[in-house]
Design a protein around this nucleic acid. Structure first.
Lengths: 199, 199
DNA sequence: CCTACCGATCGGTAGG
DNA sequence: CCTACCGATCGGTAGG
């Protein structure tokens, strides 16, 4: 048995805190996430929770990182391996729709919520959210451009325009699912994606 | 001069509170809006603010109503009068893009933010936001269907699918403006709208 | 519309 | 990782 305060146990506890924090923040927002409720939820003291992070802002940043890791596992990680360019792009979009459809987090897509919550402010949390969003869009843009130069898209296609519209499809999907529980939303997102990227 | 506590003065004060509350909530969210900060901002006491509403939830509902009124003035109210169906729909969408582009509220589109903030919860505020969103989408759907039966849209067009994609365009526009301050976002939204509704 | 106050909870610290 | 505590602020009330 490992001693109670071993490094591995400490890491495991930290992971438990962050995972639970991610679930709570997906419902109540990153600012609505409080150390007291998180501690009570985990059966720990506030000081025990905060000791792993030092400040609430550090905890928020750790939760943002965990959300990025989850997204990465569930979307690029689940998309079947496909050739770079259009095939990979289609696989990524289908995995993205599926991720939103499955509703892994109780409050829907964490990044959509965090972006809306922090987009009017400054600070490290806002920067982290914006940076991760930009990173994901850059990935998509690379595949779009490759598809374009490979002639996989109609002549004259504007890759950035297409990306703007793809992002809109996913935002609309999250909106319809979370606010209206629309059972047709995922089908609509798939049809819209097909219209943008071909069948 | 009207006496200090006349009905008209009371109404005016209430309006001042709600207007300021809307601006604050667009940045910090409806839950992040606190009675104390709102009071300090207005040079009033907390009790003076709360007296107009009774509870924070009532204040939140009043702010949601004010946001709906602003949207109504700025989008349908500014769209040039046009024939029902496709012409009116195009005018509404252009006014919608313009509303988001002008950034009237410091935190961007209030309804997008409120929808993301409350979509994982229950209660009267969530219901009010969802209801107003549904009302606006119903307006758009009516014009879409009229355009369809009038033969103003390509044969086989699915009005609900088109609506889903239009909403996505506006959500993507708000996202690009607020999170990334993308200067091309409004142009992209206009191009996407033209692709959906014709030139 | 104010002052004065309530109990609860906030983020965070001291000390072990 | 805990208990015990800090000052600040929360939503809300009493009484005028």
């Amino acid at each position: 048995m490992s001693p109670r305060n071993s490094v591995v146990e400490t890491r495991r506890t930290r992971q438990r805190i962050v995972d639970r924090g991610l679930a709570l923040a997906s419902v109540d927002g990153l600012e609505g996430l409080t150390i007291g409720r998180l501690a009570a939820d985990l059966g720990m003291s506030k000081a025990g929770v905060l000791g792993h992070f030092g400040t609430k802002e550090s905890l928020q940043l750790a939760v943002v990182d965990a959300a990025a890791e989850l997204f990465s596992e569930e979307v690029p990680g689940r998309a079947p391996a496909s050739a770079p360019g259009l095939p990979r792009l289609r696989a990524l979009c289908e995995a993205w729709v599926s991720y939103l459809e499955r509703g892994l987090l109780p409050g829907g897509c964490f990044f959509t919520a965090a972006a809306a919550e922090f987009d009017g402010r400054g600070g490290p949390v806002r920067d982290a959210v914006a940076g991760l969003d930009a990173l994901w869009q850059r990935d998509l843009r690379i595949h779009l451009r490759r598809a374009q130069t490979a002639g996989e898209l109609p002549a004259g296609t504007d890759a950035d325009q297409l990306l703007f519209e793809l992002v809109g499809v996913m935002l609309s999907l999250n909106h319809a699912l979370q606010l209206h529980r629309d059972p047709h939303a995922a089908d609509r997102a798939r049809r819209a994606t097909r219209r943008l990227l071909g069948p």
